[in-house]
Design a protein around this nucleic acid. Structure first.
Length: 592
RNA sequence: GCGGGUGUAGCUCAGUGGUAGAGCGUCACGUUGCCAACGUGAAUGUCGUGGGUUCAAGUCCCAUCACCCGCUCCA
């Protein structure tokens, strides 16, 4: 029986990484110099696998995309943009600022927690006496942490959420300790301008105009963002140690370089952290130089670079990686339909190429996860063996017109789309009134900024997922009939690095010549492999280990009737076909 | 970035301060008759890297790098 190893299994990853090294799929970058963190190389078989994945994506999404929701053909074109772009691109996209996450860490031994500073909030009360009572009450209350740290810091996605969590925690503490006036504590919204004032010790009720304090509330509690320009005691949200957080430190995740010989600020450039911006920046070029009409998509596959704080998990979080991205431009009114379309198309793509197990998951992002400009986003996730949680392979995002708006603003160029078809259809309705026509042509529904659906996939993550999914150990008999463990990479034939291997059964009686001639014929059309050495069983097993789906063997019967055997990797079954028919037979199985 | 662990042949790993090892794999020759055959032979190591202690270091100490696990992060 076939057995699949279970997730969260480091033994599985050890076996897979050993196989990838041994058989030339993946090597550590710069290995003879001790390696370099977060960078990986693909070997002879790895490059075939990854290229097959990229080519299949390009084929299935760009040159032969599926029909759209209405059953009509969809328009897709490609670009291949430079990795280094005008630095203003990254100002417009938000990466120059947004991509640099300020971090704080805890100085306390045994904790040393690391947090994103924009997700840490300090909970404070308006007087030292109130603060002390709150602390004591929350100390007595069990099960409050980690939602509400013992002292006065809290982790949350937003100040609103922090306020909610703090309120819940104080309420629970008050009930538990049965402190009447504490039950009346309110977590208040602090007016923007008063945050700084409030941060200072000794602030009085009278100096604040907090609305909820007007009637009968014993304590007012408020929440300060860690990033605000304040210097309160900085307790750790995890261990609760007072004043133990560092000042926020910037982690810039973009790689920098310089153009030209002078290394000054004016010459500073960035290696792109995503390929998407090259597409947006070329939106107008593509419109002006091809005959595409909205809705249509532009695709790009290429390298991207992120200076990850902590690269981990084999090739999953590399600092240099490859993306396969589509920006699909449509009218806002149709956008959810297109979003649903791409969400399904992209999920099905992985399934159809072999990620069939329950490990593949399509997950809709929650409202909290969504970027502020995004209406919807779905992650296609895979349960990798190194994790007990699903990890993102691809995100399908409804980005609104955020990106085009930003680039229009920062470049000063008009990036709107004019719908010629709709105009030709409707213009008679304006009765030849030039003024009305002129006005109509500058606005909806004839001129608009397209909405974007972005299916953004990681080529290296997909490659790793296909490797993990393919790795299988099963039992097959050896020549004595004893069952032996067999390692098989069950790649979909379309993705397999080698499509077919050709062997003479034995290395004599003219079999090698016939096999060699067949091999030479096949390799004109597909990756093929030829081997005359050693026992046939060993040659089969070697091909199993690199996932070759078909092995063709020239044997004694070939000499008599011109047929050869084709052996199937997964079933071990053999069939006989005329040697002239092998090419057609295999191509039929490759689906092209 | 913090803590713990690991690092010896292509892979998996032994190796008590005193000659660098095994299994598998690879290669050559012979053999070969459909699922990890057999025989004979061979190649492959700056023991992650750099310092230090010692008559002597794979082994002890320090530093550093990489990987793994946990924390954390992933616009």
């Amino acid at each position: 029986m076939e057995t699949k190893l279970m997730p969260a299994d480091t033994a599985f990853m050890d076996k897979l990484t050993a196989l990838c090294k041994r058989r030339g799929f993946i090597y550590q970058s710069s290995e003879i110099y001790g390696g370099i963190g977060g960078f990986w190389d693909y070997g002879p078989l790895g490059v075939e696998l990854k290229r097959n994945i990229k080519n299949q994506w390009w084929h299935d999404m760009v040159t032969n995309p599926p029909p759209g929701p209405d059953g009509h053909e969809i328009e897709m074109v490609g670009v291949d943009c430079s990795i280094i772009m005008n630095p203003k691109v990254w100002e417009a996209s938000g990466h120059a600022t947004g991509f640099a996450d300020p971090m704080v860490s805890c100085r306390t031994e045994g904790c040393k927690g690391l947090f994103r500073a924009d997700k840490v909030f300090f909970v404070r009360a308006l007087s030292a006496e109130a603060m002390t009572r709150l602390r004591e009450a929350s100390r007595d209350a069990e099960n409050i942490r980690p939602k509400f740290a013992l002292e006065t810091a809290i982790e949350a996605d937003s100040i609103e959420e922090a306020r909610e969590l703090a309120g819940d925690a104080i309420g629970a503490a008050a009930r538990k300790a049965n402190i009447e006036d504490l039950k009346k504590a309110r977590v208040t919204k602090l007016p923007e301008g008063e945050i700084t004032k409030a941060a200072n010790e000794g602030v009085t009720l009278a100096s604040l105009s907090v609305e909820s304090m007007k009637s009968g509330i014993a304590y007012a509690v408020f929440v300060l963002p860690c990033l605000a320009d304040t210097h309160p005691a900085r307790p750790c949200p995890r261990c609760g140690s007072p004043d133990s957080l560092t000042e926020p430190r910037q982690f810039n995740l973009m790689f920098e370089s310089h153009t030209g010989a002078l290394r000054d600020d004016a010459s500073k450039v960035y290696l792109r952290p995503e390929t998407a911006q090259g597409i947006f920046v070329n939106f107008k070029n593509v419109l002006d130089t091809t005959r595409v009409k909205v809705p249509f998509g532009i695709a790009q596959a290429g390298k991207a670079f992120r200076n990850e704080v902590n690269p981990r998990n084999y090739t999953f979080r590399s600092r240099e990686f490859e993306q396969m991205e589509i920006e699909f431009f449509c009218h806002e009114r149709d956008s959810m339909q297109w979003y649903e379309f791409w969400r399904k198309v992209r999920y099905d793509w992985y399934v159809n190429l072999g990620l069939k197990s329950e490990k593949l998951k399509l997950r809709d992002q929650t409202d909290k996860e969504l970027a502020h400009y995004s209406n919807a986003c779905a992650d296609i996730e895979y349960l990798f063996p190194f994790s007990d949680e699903h990890q993102e392979l691809e995100g399908v995002a409804h980005r609104g017109n955020f990106d085009l708006t930003q680039h229009a603003k920062f470049s000063g160029k008009d990036l709107t789309y004019f719908d010629d078809e709709a105009w030709e259809r409707d213009k008679a309705n304006f009765g030849g009134d030039k003024e009305k026509e002129r006005a109509a042509k500058t606005a909806e529904p004839y001129r608009f900024l397209p909405t974007v659906i972005e299916p953004s996939a990681g080529a290296d993550r997909a490659t790793l997922a296909f490797l993990c999914e393919a790795y299988t150990e099963d039992q097959a008999p050896d020549e004595k009939g004893v069952m032996q463990t067999r390692v098989v990479m069950k790649f979909h034939p379309k993705l397999a690095p080698t499509k077919v291997a050709v062997f003479p059964l034995v290395n004599k009686e003219g079999m090698p010549d016939i096999a060699a001639a067949l091999y030479k014929d096949l390799k004109k059309y597909m990756t093929a492999f030829f081997d005359t050495k050693g026992a046939i069983g060993r040659r089969y097993r070697r091909q199993d280990e690199v996932g070759t789906p078909f092995c063709v063997t020239v044997d004694g019967d070939t000499l008599k009737d011109g047929t050869v055997t084709i052996r199937d990797r997964d079933t071990l079954q053999q069939i006989r076909v005329k040697k002239e028919g092998v090419l057609e037979w295999v191509r039929g199985r490759l689906g092209r």
